[in-house]
């Protein structure tokens, strides 16, 4: 039982990271119907930037992470304006391909700044753990969960209560009708990219806490794909919940690796993708997605 609960706690920490990256996908998709495969690129760019920022000692881990998120957000905003905006209205497929190119460029540049050695965002929590009865949870996982929770609440508050958030929801539902009211759809696109970039940077920082960053680090962001398929491409709550589910499933697969030996030595690497394929077969629009998204 303890093993189960510990795997669960572990998975929530992991899942928070996936959820934040997936939220970026969903925010961009909802506002512009663009499927952006550039999220891994923004994540690794954010992580590498944070590894430099933490060298400014008074910033600390959180300061570096927040500053990194803001800067990556601005970068994403600029890229949207320069590269993606001129493409709006073109076939979804063409834009998706462009985002793949963008991802490769971002990753290549980011990797160039990693250099010959590995880099670190620091390890604020080390191996310290929180004890809840007999269950132990890594503090860094707890920190990830708490930070993700705060960000998600802020995001939902933003969408719910602010003028710009309302504009984003309107554009998500009917772009032309929103335009007709005088909403600046361009500003909505730009902001959605900025948010996605910032979230990817935060997610990456947590994923990198306490581990080495080299050019094999970026695939962490790929787990956002099964997450958005499971949660539904156009559902924010879906992204959060599915992120946690995928995180927990991975950790469970790690914990019960002996029972899953028929999946090979590292079942946790493939469990998310198996879930994704299963979802695509039985419920292609995800748990919370709108049915019509299926057509994309």
């Amino acid at each position: 039982m303890t093993k189960l609960l510990e795997a669960f706690a572990d998975g929530l920490g992991r899942g928070s990271v996936y959820a934040l990256i997936a939220l970026g996908f969903v925010i961009i998709y909802k506002s512009s119907r663009v499927i952006s495969f550039a999220q891994p690129g923004f994540m690794i760019a954010g992580v590498v930037l944070v590894t430099y920022l933490v060298q400014v000692s008074w910033l600390g881990f959180f300061g570096a992470m927040l500053l990194g998120a803001v800067l990556i957000g601005l970068l994403a905003l600029g890229i949207e304006r320069a590269v993606i905006r001129p493409m709006i209205g073109r076939p979804i497929f063409a834009i998706a391909i462009i985002t793949i190119g963008l991802d490769i460029v971002l990753r290549t540049v980011a990797h160039a700044y990693i250099g010959p050695l590995v880099r670190h965002v620091g390890d604020p929590w080390g191996t310290s753990q929180l004890h809840l009865g007999s269950v132990r949870m890594d503090q860094r996982h707890l920190a990830a969960v708490v930070t993700a929770t705060v960000l998600v609440l802020l995001l939902f508050g933003f969408f719910r209560y602010t003028r710009m958030g309302l504009a984003m929801r309107a554009v998500a539902e009917d772009q032309e009708a929103a335009l007709a009211q005088g909403v600046s759809v361009g500003a909505v696109f730009a902001l959605s990219w900025a948010l996605a970039g910032g979230l990817a940077a935060v997610a990456g920082s947590f994923a990198a806490a306490g581990v080495s960053v080299d050019n094999t680090f970026w695939p962490v962001a790929l787990y956002a794909l099964p997450v958005i398929i499971l949660g539904g491409l156009d559902s924010l709550p879906g992204a959060v919940l599915a992120g946690l589910v995928i995180g927990v499933l991975r950790s469970l697969a790690d914990a019960y690796v002996d029972d899953l030996s028929w999946l090979g030595e590292n079942p946790s690497l493939i469990v998310p993708w198996l879930v994704m394929m299963l979802v695509l077969v039985v419920r292609p629009y995800g748990l919370f997605g709108t049915r019509e998204v299926e057509r994309v």
Binding site: R163, L166, A167, R169, A170, E173, D174, E176, A177, A178, A180, Q181, G182, V183
Partner: peptide, 24 residues
């Protein structure tokens, strides 16, 4: 303009729709 087919924001509340009308 009131567009053909009304084009209200069905997922938003009546008040939010009105807020959007007065967005500018």
């Amino acid at each position: 303009q009131v567009m053909e087919g009304r084009r209200i924001f069905g997922e938003l509340t009546v008040e939010e729709n009105l807020r959007l009308g007065g967005y500018t």
